[in-house]
Amino acid sequence: MRLTRRDALVALGATGLAGAGVGAGVLAFDDGSPADGDDETGADALLRSLAAAAEVLYPSGVEGVEEFVETYSLGRVRGRETYREGLRRAVSDLDAAARAWYGAPYADLDRDTRESVLRELGADTADADPEGRRGERIRYYVVEELLYAFYASPTGGRLAGIENPVGYPGGVESYRRGPEAARTGSERGDDSGDGGESP
């Protein structure tokens, strides 16, 4: 199954940050970053690392991870200075660990090694904490963030059997439907994908 841009928008909708459009988010991220060409903190490298982590966290058959992570993450950072800094720091810690322990950027490691790095950092057992120790921050900004995005999106939810995940508006439409609704494609119009603005 394939993650779509709409999945990312839906997952963002659940967080309330999708409303004003994610295109603006991309710009805000690029504009707002110090354009210092530093690989470890540059937007591209950051997104590559996140996508590489997502491939570990998401089920193996899922396609379109890179675009999904990009759309979601850029939408997430839009207008959220503290969050952006926290994300940047967590990802560069992850990358630094990869370079120190395995001699390559995180995104260049194979999938098993990427998983090891996360576990060696304690991001599997740590309590998520945006201001905590390294492993706790990585758990918060990388592991839980990406898992939340996936399982709060229709594609992720559908894999689990719920096309309208908790935290996303639409339950009053879907709660009366039978199980076939989770197996079939989209029941919602595409224009509802960026729903989630509080009335």
Binding site: L118, Y148, F150, Y151, G157, A160
Partner: peptide
């Protein structure tokens, strides 16, 4: 109408990732 955990509950609570996590989510939700 809300018995058991939601997929996000399971996903954010566990130590499993990837296919193992999906299997766990499917077992726990639904």
């Amino acid at each position: 109408n809300y018995a058991g955990p939601a997929p996000t509950d399971v996903a954010l609570d566990g130590e499993q990732w990837g296919d193992d996590l999906l299997a766990e989510v499917r077992e726990s939700y639904g």
